[in-house]
Amino acid sequence: MSGSRLVAAIVLLAVLSAIPAILPPYFLHLVIQILIWSFIYTAWALMGRFGFVSFGHGAFLGVGAYVPALLWNFYGLTPWLGIPLSIIAAVLLAAVVGYPCFRRRVVGHYFALVTLALSQVVLLSLVAARDVTGGSLGFTQKAVGHSWYALQFPEKGYFYAIAVLLWLAGLAIWRWIDRGIGREALEAISEDEDAAASIGIDVMRAKMRVTIISAGLTALGGAIYGQYVMYLNPETVAGIAVSLQIVFAAIAGGVYSLLGPSVGALLTLSLTEGLRVWFGTNFIGAANTIYGILLVLCIIFMPQGIVGALQRVTLPRRAPAKANATETPQSVTRRPSSAAQ
């Protein structure tokens, strides 16, 4: 088994390293975006899979994107320091809102709506501080050409490599939580908090830990995204719209399996991009209209997400052979019972 996994890993690495050489720039750009967003969606799914549905990740993303950019433009601070600072800021924000939320048992609808308000606060603050951030007109980082110090690379290959590393790191963290003791605790909490507490699980600690990790990673994703596109707009990196985008893509792909959020990113981004090319600029909104319909249909007919639905279809036949290769089918097959409640 480990032999075939090694082969698979080598093949994956070979494909990944061949991509920048083969793909034309436009597609490379798309792939980089998909990888960065995959990382962000995976970060969201760390919480989402345990039923902590945050609509506040737009806030963390916005903080992550804007903090290094502002520090760079106004103080010339290198993103190598700016990005850690942005992660700290996002983690603090998550802690300040998350801690009382968990302490006061704000769950379900209420949690979703409190976090939604949080992402609006960040969005509107960015717009309100228009003297500094440029408001809804957006913000462009000072470009200095190829520079490690400024973390700016006009050559797409560099960001491709960064995005791949980021993505793999995200998957590794997902795996780490999935395999760790934390997962059992969090699943118990998402089923029944009181019962979890009564068997000695430190509910607060478990929730705070996963929230902080998720927020910090989201900020990191936002920062890298900002460094890559070199243009920030409050509407695209903060607020309800992007929060919904994160939640949708992660759910569409499936939050209970390792690659679910990545599949979500791949599908949603290629779909919007494909529809945009297909319809051209004559039909603004057509792409998103179809996207919206697909989202609704997906939620109604495939609540487990695409990866979940595929696994449910393919699992019965392949279960014995696959059982060892990955533990994700377990979590998917276990899920329906708890999701149905």
């Binding site: 998103n288 989202l295 149905a340």
Partner: peptide
């Protein structure tokens, strides 16, 4: 939209109406 997800977890209900939000805004733009 609501009737099919009436017995689903609240999250899916939020998302179904969220998808409709997305649809309505885009369709109006179109």
């Amino acid at each position: 939209i609501i009737a099919p997800v009436l017995r689903s977890p609240p999250l899916n209900q939020l998302l179904a109406t969220g998808g409709l939000l997305f649809f309505l805004q885009s369709f109006a733009t179109l």
